[in-house]
C-alpha cells in the first residue's frame, strides 16, 4: 500500500477550490495518482541544498523588451472576442446569478 499523504477530506477540499466536480470513479483514480506523484515529489526533501542557493523562476532569465508604456490600444474586432462567449446579449456575456446576489 502506498503511504497516503493527502487525506480524503483534504482531497475533497481541493476539488472544491479547483472548481471541479468528480465522479466516484474519477475521485478514486485521481486521489491515488496524486498520492503517487507526491511520493516522487518527496524526493525533493532528500536533496542536500547549499544554504546560499536562490530559487529560479526561469532557468534562463528572459531578456525581453522592457515593459511598454501602459497605453490603451483598441483591438480591431472586439465583436469577434464577444462572439466566442457561449451566451451573449447586446454585446454582453450572460452568466447565471451569483449565489446570494440580488
Amino acid at each position: 500500500m502506498t503511504t497516503k499523504r493527502i487525506s480524503p477530506e483534504l482531497f475533497e477540499k481541493l476539488v472544491g477550490l479547483a472548481a471541479l466536480e468528480l465522479t466516484a470513479e474519477e475521485s478514486t483514480y485521481l486521489f491515488e495518482e496524486m498520492n503517487h506523484q507526491l511520493a516522487s515529489v518527496e524526493a525533493l526533501s532528500q536533496i542536500p541544498l547549499p544554504e546560499d542557493v536562490e530559487p529560479s523562476l526561469h532557468g534562463l532569465e528572459p531578456k525581453g523588451l522592457p515593459p511598454r508604456p501602459d497605453e490603451w490600444k483598441p483591438f480591431a474586432h472586439p465583436e469577434a472576442i464577444i462572439a466566442l462567449a457561449p451566451e451573449t446579449e447586446d454585446g454582453m456575456i450572460v452568466v447565471p446569478d451569483v449565489k446570494g446576489a440580488k
Binding site: 482531497f11 481541493l14 479547483a18 472548481a19 471541479l20 452568466v95 449565489k99
Partner: peptide, 29 residues
C-alpha cells in the same frame, strides 16, 4: 445550473479530461 459557481464546476468537470484535472489538483496542493 443554480448559480455561477455551479456553472464553473459543471463546465470544468464536463470539459476537462482526467489529466488536466490531476494537474490542477496537484498544482493547487
Amino acid at each position: 445550473v443554480e448559480d455561477l459557481n455551479e456553472l464553473y464546476r459543471r463546465s470544468r468537470a464536463e470539459g476537462f479530461g482526467l489529466e488536466p484535472k490531476l494537474r490542477i489538483l496537484m498544482g493547487m496542493y
